[in-house]
């Protein structure tokens, strides 16, 4: 804890001293460091989680690798900084990380009061509840009087407050700083309910002693658009982040995959040509090479591939695409055209 506070204070101190440097071009900083510094969670399976060998994996991690691939043509030129929910914004404000890709909900106050810019939504989520099966509860509306475990410093605290108030229900909130302690306390029976983003519930359920004994209730009580965040005042960097995501969406829509990206280079489809840089100068417009999108897809694949690999139906999380499907498949993911 002391270390935490220290880092926040150090961050603020750095912020006050190095404010000039922070507003300089992030892309130049990144190039001179020869790596992208990416803020991720402290371990959320499917989104950002170290595997047995200590390599970071997950949807948010793949996004950072895609950014590195777009800039350097090398997805390994990225360094990860695990951050708690509490530390994340200060770390980005102070320049400790270049991009925050940490299942962070886009809200108006965060977007306007913190000196930060939310770029895109790489996962549409909503807050849900998980309970023990033997509790016999089938709906969140039966939870009046329950004890609820969650994380501090998240939107979930406020959502749950609003939801219970709107439905005239009582509850006791037990808020921990780290996700691991929330899981441990819920597992130990301190709470009846564990609440966080629904994707997080599926992910954290894997850490419980008996994952099969718990169910996620059907209610979704909030909109949680999750996506990467950057500092305000650097439009070029914001564009790189935005178009990294859009390139992955366009690739999926156009059927460009990690496996066929090389043969797609000789495609006659003008949209594919513009995406892969065989036509036009779109990379130069965001300060990158013309093969930026090719490098992204070569390195991590298109959006659908990263989704399936990290959180999709064949993974332990088994999350279906749902609202995260492409716009023409009934979802919300919509990549503006590259032209």
């Amino acid at each position: 804890m002391k270390r935490r506070i220290l880092s926040v204070i150090a961050g603020t101190a750095v912020l006050s001293l190095a404010a000039g440097a922070a507003s300089a071009a992030t892309l130049d900083d990144v190039k001179s460091k020869d790596s992208v510094q990416c803020g991720v969670s402290q371990g959320l399976p499917g989104f950002s989680n170290p595997d047995q060998d200590g390599n970071w994996t997950g949807l948010d991690v793949d996004f950072c690798r895609a950014v590195a691939a777009a800039i350097f043509g090398d997805p390994s030129k990225v360094k990860f900084t695990p951050l708690s929910a509490k530390e994340r914004f200060t770390a980005l404000q102070s320049g400790d990380v270049d991009v925050l890709s940490r299942n962070t909900t886009w809200t108006m106050s965060r977007d306007t009061a913190l000196g930060l810019n939310f770029s895109v939504v790489n996962y549409y989520d909503g807050q849900g509840f998980m309970v023990r099966k033997d509790l016999g509860v089938n709906s969140a509306l039966e939870l009046s009087g329950a004890s609820i475990c969650t994380n501090t410093g998240t939107t979930t605290e406020l959502n749950v407050a609003d939801y219970f108030r709107a439905n005239n229900m009582e509850y006791e909130l037990v808020a921990f700083e780290k996700a691991d302690e929330v899981v441990a306390a819920y597992d130990a029976g301190r709470c009846d309910v564990y609440t966080t983003d629904q994707s997080g519930l599926y992910a954290q359920r894997l850490k419980l002693t008996d994952p099969g004994a718990h169910i996620v209730l059907p209610e979704i009580i909030s909109k949680e658009p999750l996506g990467p965040v950057v500092r305000q005042g650097d439009d070029q960097w914001l564009n790189i982040i935005k178009w990294t995501h859009f390139a992955m969406l366009n690739a999926e829509e156009l059927g460009v995959t990690q496996a066929n990206v090389d043969e797609m280079k000789s495609s006659d489809n003008p949209s594919v040509k513009r995406l892969l840089g065989t036509e036009g100068e779109f990379g130069g417009a965001i300060g990158l090479g013309n093969d930026w999108a090719y490098n992204i897809i070569k390195a991590v694949g298109n959006y659908g591939e990263t989704f399936d690999r990290n959180v999709g139906p064949d993974t332990p999380l088994a999350i279906s695409r749902g609202v995260n499907a492409q716009w023409n498949q009934g979802g919300l993911q919509y990549g503006p055209p590259i032209r």
Partner: peptide, 12 residues
Amino acid sequence: AGTALNQTGQAV
């Protein structure tokens, strides 16, 4: 210094 800080973002 936890929840309130995070909701308001006013660390200093």
